[in-house]
Computed example of a mutant assay.
Amino acid sequence: MMPSPSRPAFLAAGAALVTVVLWASAFVSIRSAGEVYSPGALALGRLLAGSVALGALCLIRREGWPPRAAWPGIVVSGVLWFGVYMVVLNWGEQQVDAGTAALVVNIGPILIALLGARLLGDPMPPRLLAGMAVSFAGAVTVGLSMSGGGSSSALGVLLCLLAAVAYAGGVVAQKPALARAGALQVTTFGCLVGAVLCLPFAGQLVSEAADAPLPATLNMVYLGLFPTALAFTTWAYALARTTAGRMGATTYAVPALVVLMSWLALGEVPGPLTLAGGALCLAGVAVSRSRGRAARVVAASPRPGPARERSGGSAGSA
């Protein structure tokens, strides 16, 4: 008889759910703040708000400094994901239509799976590959259906491609750091590294904040507190308990949630093609994360034996 999944597995799954919901909500806030703040200023303001919140939480919890062995992964992920990714994505999405952005940026999870297999030794089971292919098709369908006939530039495509590469590299670099430091530590100091990298935009941030309407500034602060501070921490918690490829595939749920939130919050009624694309995204995530429990345990366990096959529900990643 198979036991029920363990509490840590439920917590990791819940953390992943919090992450994708908050990252989906970020698109509504970015739409408001991005009309007023330039890409670099928006990234810096978001990272400063996130750093203050995370730093305060670390002080309250007395987390201390991460171990020395965790710093290479923290610095690389901070530079690539918190720094480069946020700036170039903000910039790139101003240059291309939504369909092109969906096509280029959403190769990120595919790159994560490939880099994870190459650099971290993560498995690439057929279900993961099939699910990612389905979700990628859904993400592109959503983007094309919501693009509104916009135009694309070569610079915009290159920026979105750079964002996808930076995202993938940041995630793969973060994974080993999470084996040596806690999720809150890795997120806090990664966010600080990204904020330091974006300090050259401080002048833009100050001048634009002086003229910005209050809702745009509040949306920037929201981006820092929730899609950055909270969602990146829950992401790190879940990533520490699964493979980089499976976590990357989970983010394909974001386009489907964006469609739903735009419908509820902005009154943007999705068309049939948009709904079909969202359904494909969710179906692909379900396929990519539905590995057999026994197979998970055998892959994760170094010692053979029948007892481990019976404990599949409490071992492995979630």
Rank of each mutant, 00 (worst) to 15 (best):
G190N: 06
L218C: 01
D211K: 14
E208S: 03
Q174W: 00
L205E: 04
K175H: 06
G224R: 05
L218N: 01
V172N: 11
P215I: 03
G182W: 12
A231W: 05
L199D: 02
T228C: 12
A154D: 15
A216C: 09
A179P: 14
A164S: 07
D211W: 05
A164I: 06
A210P: 10
A229I: 14
T228I: 00
V171G: 06
G224V: 01
L218P: 00
G170S: 06
S152E: 13
T228S: 14
A163E: 02
A209P: 10
G190I: 08
A168G: 11
L161H: 02
D211C: 13
F189K: 06
V165D: 10
L161M: 11
A216H: 06
L184A: 14
L162G: 15
Q185V: 07
V193M: 00
A210G: 13
A210W: 11
L230V: 15
L205S: 03
A154T: 12
V171H: 05
A164K: 06
L155Q: 14
S152R: 13
A229E: 10
V221Y: 04
L230S: 10
L214W: 07
L184T: 11
Y222T: 00
T217V: 11
A231N: 08
G182K: 08
G149A: 13
V171K: 00
V193S: 02
S207E: 15
A163R: 02
T187V: 10
A231G: 09
A166V: 03
L230A: 13
L205K: 05
R180Q: 15
Q204A: 12
A173S: 13
G149Q: 10
L161G: 13
C160G: 11
L223T: 04
G148N: 13
S207L: 11
A202N: 02
S151L: 14
A179Y: 03
